[in-house]
Nucleic acid binder design. Structure first.
Length: 276
DNA sequence: CGGACAACCTGGTTGC
DNA sequence: TGCAACCAGGTTGTCC
């Protein structure tokens, strides 16, 4: 569920609510959600710590503490972070709870248990930081059409799986890759190295536009995604292809088609996005 | 390197 | 209605 826009929305919302708050208590009901360190150690190092910053790297949300530690959350496929009053009824799949000095609880709700939480010293000396192998931030100024071109150069892989590879560009997932490719009028199974200069430029522009717009719309909500206060995003209202199989392309009217590419459901317009 | 596929989990939807 | 099969916004590892 959570791709860059959903994580960015979460980070911005959390930032306004939890910075300067102190963690009074920690409980974990699914031990496997905490990947590092052991629960005892995890709890000990969190208790009494203040949150001084909240930021994002790729699809990881990071809470900087007033110790030397970072609390790092990856929501996996179905995870969300909710900020609720302690008294509010617990949601069905809460795997970890961080109680703050305001009486609010930061709840990690994760039905499929694909999410991961880490507590790692900020230099990554005891355990590698999970973004050690992540690629560029697509919304950073340093992500130019030229740098994208150099990432694609010589790569024989299919365009879509390559864009999903977090080692090249960090933050794109299945929804936004499909949306980006439609906006750029590129077929998901084009070979990355076959793109012309003009096509790379279009791809670059589409990545920036789609992600920035989706951030502005506070992400995409299907069944379960909610922000930290349980509200929906709005980008689902303007999707061009994702989960629109059989519906008319908003540009040319052709029925949107769904195929499997790299093991992922892939939606595209066979007229606007030609294979060759 | 690249691609197919399974695995990790649970819940909702689809189809018979 | 009941139930099995299939699908899902992610990541990682194996095998060829």
């Amino acid at each position: 569920m959570p791709e860059l826009p959903e994580v960015e929305t979460m980070v911005r919302d959390l930032s306004a609510r939890v910075v300067d708050r102190v963690i009074d208590d920690v409980s974990v009901s699914n031990a496997a959600s905490v990947r590092w360190p052991t629960f005892q150690e995890f709890r000990r190092r969190l208790l009494g710590r203040a949150i001084v910053d909240v930021w994002r790297r790729g699809k990881y949300a990071v809470l900087t503490l007033d110790s030397s530690d970072l609390l790092i959350i990856h929501r996996g496929m179905s995870g969300s972070v909710l900020l609720r009053e302690k008294e509010a009824p617990l949601e069905a799949h809460v795997r970890a709870v961080f109680t703050l000095d305001t009486g609010d609880e930061m709840r990690f709700n994760d039905p499929r248990k694909f999410g991961k939480i880490f507590l790692i010293d900020r230099r990554g000396e005891e355990h590698p930081l999970p973004w050690a192998h992540l690629g560029m931030e697509p919304l950073d100024d340093s992500f130019s059409a030229d740098t994208l071109a150099s990432l694609l150069a010589g790569r024989k892989a299919l365009l879509k799986p390559l864009l999903l590879d977090q080692r090249l560009v960090a933050g794109l997932g299945n929804i936004y890759v499909d949306e980006v490719l439609h906006r750029a009028s590129l077929h998901p199974q084009r070979r990355a190295h076959s793109l012309t200069v003009d096509e790379v430029q279009r791809l670059h522009g589409a990545i920036r536009w789609v992600l920035a717009t989706a951030v502005h719309q506070r992400g995409t909500t299907f069944e379960s995604y909610r922000d930290i206060e349980g509200r929906e995003g709005h980008y689902q209202d303007v999707l061009l292809v994702f989960r629109r199989t059989g519906s008319a392309c908003r540009r040319c009217g052709t029925a949107i088609v769904k195929i499997v590419v790299g093991g992922r459901g892939t939606h595209f317009c066979p007229t606007c996005q030609r294979a060759s």
